[in-house]
Design a protein around this nucleic acid. Structure first.
Lengths: 342, 342
DNA sequence: TGTTAGCACTCGATGTGGTTGAGTGCTAAC
DNA sequence: GTTAGCACTCAACCACATCGAGTGCTAACA
């Protein structure tokens, strides 16, 4: 059976109504809600069809209908296809200057949570092909060397290295030159064993320091392992009775605490730059099977990518969420540029 | 009226029993539970006294008794007075090497949450009189200078400074020497306006860079503003029906998300190095009025102080919690030392 | 053939009344 | 001072009735 125009309208009405009330929707409501001028009995027939086709379902025999995952999917696909007509104002003032990427992301997560009343998460931007920009070794005291590693996108890492024999200024300078000339501008997969061996040879008796620095470099660039995720508005899930049940809430909150779980959603396939909607069981995270998750990948000017996500009930206001995220996608890049100019 | 020995035993029995079961305790239970050999009727008389004195209360007329805040307070004070007899093994292996203070603290929070089954929080160590150890400016590219500031306790801060005119290597070296000779070993309140003016004079046309570095130094040392707090086991609160109620849970989870709220507890008065127990309304945080909070201040060898906290139901196992925290107080310092040796 | 009115039916939600049992306070006796 | 006994209270539980929103089906209608 095909979804004819009238069925689409009815399905749409059922979903919209359910999104608003959170209660199962009956045939009489629909018959008044739409301007189809059909009696509840006719609606009932259509709804029976829709149920058979799997778009809606009944929680129990004598209740109204609620959208199934498939129904939500229909609705969301329809939404995404629609042209973006209006651009709503985001009320928060995000333009105040931030001194760090970290605080910026935290603020975005919080503003988004307040604006949407859902739980939000945002992953720090990462670049697969992050390049080394600058390395500096300096002596902190007799036994300690500080290694500072700057990579593109200004990701900075410090490591304190402990050395046994004292290094004089001259040696340190040589090592600095050695490291910078050899490694500058390279991405992680360009630093191969040959290069490392070569550098160790050149470093002579100080080859162990080179090793340690290389390790630190690897760690600084190879960022996948410790994906930074910032979350906010976790307690918003209590706004939605269908999620506030002890077991579900506990699982969800746990997921928000164990950030690497969120990573599975936020890292996604990496390719798509668009907006993804996971409805119920579509989510890669098991504990979110009763929620919907909307994610948007943002990209900063210099090729760094990150993801913003919103977690809410299946009956979330997809329309608004998608619009807000779309807007944020472009805004984040601007914000970041502003920040780096001051 | 005074608390005679028998009343103490009965009160103790009521509390212990309630801690285990979470249910109101009746007179008959107590009469069997203790080895006082008293009938339930006698216990009832004593319990009526205890209630009048405010140590226990009845949820409703025909229910058993539960401890009041005052009752818990009595119990905890008694516990704290007791000599520490046994030292229980902590099962987690915390000794694995950590590469950062941050991850160490996160792991401690998590291990503690798993061990106790309560929600935990830990604040990063801070020192009021943190001293500067080392400052280094280096050129990243034509327009950008990287300022690295190392203070005692190896708190490291990076700032990227943007400059208009190009700085040659010589000038940079001069600035480095200027900054280090003037600021090395100073605490924040020793850097006064006179010193700053002097340095700016010496820096000549590059005085604006000195200003920026000083700002960064202030930020690096003056850490109170952005107290770092790590939490874990938030979802443990669902284990306790008396906290799992929607409203309370939502408020609690919110408090755990808004870390600065936790700061009010964790920063405490700063003087006491011991273990603090806040029962119900004693807590400085309003939303924790239905919980108990136990905090312990830890001190690292170099004078840095932080606080560990555990949040649970009023009927938490104070005995175990206090013992675990006491143990952790000493362990953290050892762990930190180990970490810095590798 | 599509639409509608009508009706019997289902079933969760809500309310009511009775019972149970743990626990209490009080009193009188030991 | 302690205890046995008794009347009393009250949350919890269960059984039962009621209500009403909503359904599916059928027959009639345009």
């Amino acid at each position: 059976m095909e979804l004819d125009e009238r069925k689409k309208i009815i399905l749409h009405a059922v979903i919209r109504n359910y999104l608003e009330t959170g209660e199962p929707v009956g045939s009489r409501t629909i018959s008044k809600y739409t301007d189809l001028n059909l009696s509840s009995a006719t609606i009932r027939n259509e709804m029976a069809d829709l149920e058979e086709m799997g778009y809606i379902l009944q929680p129990h025999t004598s209740a109204g209908r609620i959208p199934s995952d498939k129904g939500y999917r229909f609705y969301v696909d329809m939404l995404m296809a629609e042209k973006e007509k209006e651009v709503e104002e985001m009320k928060e003032v995000l333009v105040q200057r931030q001194d760090k990427m970290e605080t910026l992301l935290k603020h975005v997560a919080r503003a988004l949570a307040q604006n949407t009343q859902y739980a939000t998460m945002i992953s720090a931007p990462q670049s697969r092909r992050n390049k080394l920009k600058f390395i500096q070794l300096s002596r902190v005291d007799a036994q300690q060397i500080l290694a500072v590693i700057v990579s593109e996108g200004n990701v900075i890492k410090n490591n304190i290295l402990h050395v046994k024999e004292d290094l004089n200024d001259e040696t340190l300078l040589k090592l600095n030159i050695l490291l910078n000339t050899n490694l500058n501008g390279l991405a992680i997969d360009e630093i191969n064993l040959g290069l490392i061996t070569l550098m160790k040879q050149q470093a002579g008796i100080h080859s162990d320091i080179v090793s340690e620095v290389i390790d630190a470099v690897a760690e600084a660039i190879h960022a996948e392992e410790d994906l930074e995720v910032y979350t906010s508005g976790t307690n918003n899930i209590f706004r939605y009775p269908e999620l506030a049940d002890h077991k579900k809430a506990s699982e969800l909150i746990n997921a928000f605490e164990e950030k690497q779980l969120l990573g599975e959603i936020l890292q996604g396939d990496g390719e798509s730059t668009g907006i993804q909607v996971y409805i119920g069981a579509e989510s890669p995270v098991q504990s979110m099977k009763d929620c919907s998750v909307v994610t948007a990948t943002y990209e900063l000017g210099d090729g760094m990518k990150g993801t913003i996500g919103i977690v809410g009930p299946k009956r979330m206001d997809y329309d608004k969420v998608v619009r807000t995220l779309r807007r944020l996608q472009t805004q984040l890049d601007d914000l970041y540029k502003n920040e780096n100019q001051n």
